[in-house]
């Protein structure tokens, strides 16, 4: 009895801010409103499968994949260094990764805008060094840069948390059984850290796939991603039905990829920020 009454505020929260909005999205996605009234329809979905929209979807997936891979290749070594026994300033480095997250995401992305400008800070420095200037603002590269910059901590932290929990004795046992450092990494450290890698990938790939702020600021609006498309439908075009349909497709994609990830994550190991 007591437990259920304690649950009430959370239940209310979930109902009002998750269940009801989701149902609304489903409702708008599967209906078509016209002058003659509202009726059930799949036309919003069929419309999404037109080439112009599929291209947007493909570009979103492509950029999110690239950003996730870069985050993984930058983040894994960083996490390893931080979790390493030899590294004594791990708290300082951890702080360096976390501190930017204390600041507003929008502000940080705006900051890149001024850094990357034609006459921005970076080109100023390059000019002094008599190097060719860098003009990547409003290109795919800038969008990827923004994603990597914003989402890198979400890759590093889960991997770090798994790596730092690996018992040193297990690594010694591997050495004891004849494994050199390289073999220890491939046969023990990497497999044991997979849950962290999986949750890192999930936590970078999902927001990268659906972001609309980064692409709008750094992509200059020329490179519409799926997030921008949804935003447009709701705020500019006013086609809530189509916007909802795209959202549902994205939800489905995300659920599918999460199912795929948890399949790789293996059975009972549950070490992540999820």
């Amino acid at each position: 009895m007591k437990r259920s009454s304690a649950m009430a505020p959370y239940l209310l929260w979930i109902v009002f801010f998750t269940v009801v909005p989701t149902l609304l999205v489903v409702y708008y996605g599967f209906t078509q409103s016209g002058p003659e009234g509202t009726h059930w329809s799949l036309s919003n979905f069929t419309r999404f499968f037109e080439p112009i929209y599929l291209r947007v979807l493909w570009r979103s997936v492509y950029l999110a994949l690239i950003s996730t891979s870069i985050c993984l290749f930058l983040g894994y070594p960083a996490a390893m260094i931080m979790a390493g026994r030899a590294f004594t300033r791990k708290n300082a480095l951890l702080l360096l990764f976390v501190v930017p997250m204390w600041m507003n995401f929008l502000l940080r992305t705006y900051a890149w805008l001024t850094l990357l400008e034609r006459n921005g800070f970076i080109n100023l420095i390059l000019g002094y060094l008599r190097l060719p200037s860098l003009n990547i603002l409003y290109t795919n590269s800038a969008v990827v840069l923004g994603m990597v910059y914003n989402f890198l901590p979400f890759m590093v932290l889960p991997i770090y948390s798994v790596l730092s929990k690996i018992d040193r004795r297990v690594l010694e046992a591997a050495q004891d059984l004849g494994a050199n450092s390289w073999t220890v990494f491939w046969r023990v450290i990497l497999p044991l850290s997979l849950p962290g890698v999986v949750s890192g990938i999930t936590m970078v790939f999902m927001p990268a796939l659906t972001t609309f702020v980064i692409s709008r600021l750094l992509g200059g609006g020329q490179f519409t991603l799926i997030g921008n498309l949804i935003e447009q439908q709701f705020l500019v075009v006013g086609d809530w039905g189509f916007g909802s349909a795209i959202s549902l497709v994205m939800m489905l994609l995300i659920l599918l990829s999460m199912a795929l990830m948890s399949f790789f994550e293996g059975d009972e190991r549950e070490v992540s920020l999820w």
Partner: peptide
């Protein structure tokens, strides 16, 4: 030389 560790240190994966 091979070692048997105090808490076994088996490979859980």
């Amino acid at each position: 030389v091979n070692t048997i560790f105090q808490r076994y240190a088996l490979f859980s994966h």
